[in-house]
Amino acid sequence: MSDRPAVEGHSSPLYAIILGFIFPLSLGALLSDWRYSFTYEIQWLNFADWLVAGSLVGGGLALAWTLVANTVRGRWRHRPSSLAALLLVIFFVIQFINALTHSKDAYATMPAGLILSIIATLLALAAAWLGLRSSTKGVAQ
């Protein structure tokens, strides 16, 4: 143990990968929604629909990991802050509503889909940022 490099406070690469889903996928959905909203090219909406769904899969896994790390005591190398966990919860709820909105047909998705994608992208950015920041909360032991 003693010859291990000092990684205390750094997140696991796997956690970073999982948490890394939400921002690019949400941003992709946002850009696709934006294109659809004025070109009416339906393929953009198909892309957005899947990207929202994908961000929910990544977001769900990241949320589960974060909640476990925040509630289960133990030797966590990295424990995301409760604020990060809270942001992830809000992101998940908003993006879930966004997924339902995107399941409507054609322009029935607009403008709510675009607005929700903007909010979800900002939340994803903040949640991922905070989630990956070094935190001193979990390193004592």
Binding site: I42, Q43, L45
Partner: peptide, 9 residues
Amino acid sequence: NSNITERGM
């Protein structure tokens, strides 16, 4: 080919 053009025109 769709409910209401959701496969494109």
